[in-house]
Simulated assay, not measured.
Amino acid sequence: MTFDLHRTPIAGDAPGTTTDLFWYTAGPEDAPVRVHLQAALHADEQPGTMALHHLLPRLREADAAGQLRARFSIFPSVNPLGLSHVSLRHHIGRYDMGSGLNHNRAWPDLYLLVADRLSGKLTDDAAANVATIRQTVTEWIDDQAATTASRRLRLMVLRSAVNSDIVLDLHCDDESLKHIFTSPELMPGLQDLADWMGVAATLTAEDSGGGSFDEVLPNLYRKAQRANPDHPIPMAAETATLEYRGQADVSDEIGIEDAAGLHGFFAGRGLIDADPGTLPSPAPAPTPFEATEVLRTDAPGLLAYRIGLGDRVSRGQPVADLIAMDGPDAFIARRPLVAGTDGFILSRASAKYVRAGTGIAKIVGTEVLPSRAGGYLLED
């Protein structure tokens, strides 16, 4: 049996403090495919943790039956540091309390950091080049002297991910339908993941502007390819952010459904020697993330939505009304906030008091928006 629980202590930033990271491995150590699964990088997002809670027993049973054909590393709550970030009874699991940095932003540009170390090491053997790149990045990670607990955690997680072939980062939105973020080169290869997950949308971008975790490895291989055109370098990691609905969508019923989807994906790939179950209906084809509008407020106020999740809207159609909370018509005046594109409502804000600049809805369209091309695509 290879199903094991690991406990890794992470030295804290204050004297005498340590936080334990609990994670699992399963499957043969010499398996040809390695899978990295993590949830709750934003520590206040728990739907992925619930999904992995229900997936772990299935992996344990498959391991006991000798059915695992991949090596799995599973981090059900990958950011235990963020679990303690509570202020005035509010869990602030999205941001590091010391630096204010979003836990899913500013992950490193690995090729920039290892390009000199790779010089002269690449050959005409694609598989060997992947192994060399992975080993070089691993050596760089091992050479780092991390000065904060957050950085120590990031380096440990990155070490697992960079040596994996499939890397799935489980998140959720505020109030949302299921969707995926991934790199354009990885589609339609990950269409089976979208199908098994049952997503409403798969949004693709080479660079969404924030250094998100799921973009680190595609960016590594993409930059290596472009800098070394005479050497074969495949896109050696299938990575994606899986957005499992909204923060409030945490229940056994939902978790069982999501775990079944993950199990079906892995079994369908032959990574678990088991019946994947009934094939799901095809999910929509991917669309560029630049074709998704993030509708923002231009003033503070109280939101009154006119639409629901999944509703289709046309450009100029009111999505919500913003009720004034000051001025000559305070608490009486209201004005519409309108869609800037044709599409459907993927997500909404659950908090109805909003400040100026708040993203209140994502509208998934099909045509790249000039205001989004080449810009910062994320909400915060």
Score class of each variant (00 low, 15 high):
216 V>M: 02
127 A>C: 00
204 T>S: 10
150 S>G: 09
116 D>P: 14
138 T>H: 14
119 S>P: 01
124 D>I: 03
182 T>K: 15
126 A>T: 05
196 W>Q: 05
134 R>W: 00
112 L>Y: 08
143 D>T: 04
154 R>P: 01
211 G>D: 14
185 E>K: 11
171 H>D: 06
193 L>P: 13
194 A>C: 09
219 N>V: 13
208 S>L: 02
130 V>C: 06
180 I>F: 10
109 D>I: 06
186 L>E: 09
176 S>N: 13
142 D>L: 13
146 A>M: 02
183 S>D: 10
205 A>C: 08
175 E>R: 15
154 R>I: 00
179 H>F: 15
130 V>R: 07
206 E>T: 15
122 L>Y: 13
152 R>T: 05
203 L>G: 02
178 K>A: 06
109 D>M: 02
135 Q>G: 14
202 T>K: 11
187 M>P: 04
161 A>Y: 02
154 R>C: 00
192 D>G: 03
209 G>H: 05
185 E>N: 13
219 N>F: 04
214 D>T: 09
175 E>A: 12
109 D>G: 07
167 V>C: 12
117 R>F: 01
168 L>A: 08
207 D>R: 13
173 D>A: 12
199 V>P: 10
224 A>S: 02
165 D>C: 07
215 E>R: 07
199 V>A: 05
157 V>M: 15
166 I>A: 01
184 P>F: 03
188 P>Y: 02
179 H>I: 04
148 T>D: 05
211 G>V: 07
156 M>W: 04
170 L>N: 07
142 D>R: 13
203 L>I: 08
180 I>T: 07
202 T>W: 09
116 D>S: 09
124 D>W: 03
211 G>R: 01
121 K>A: 07
138 T>A: 13
193 L>W: 07
137 V>F: 07
154 R>M: 08
118 L>R: 02
153 L>V: 12
218 P>R: 08
156 M>T: 08
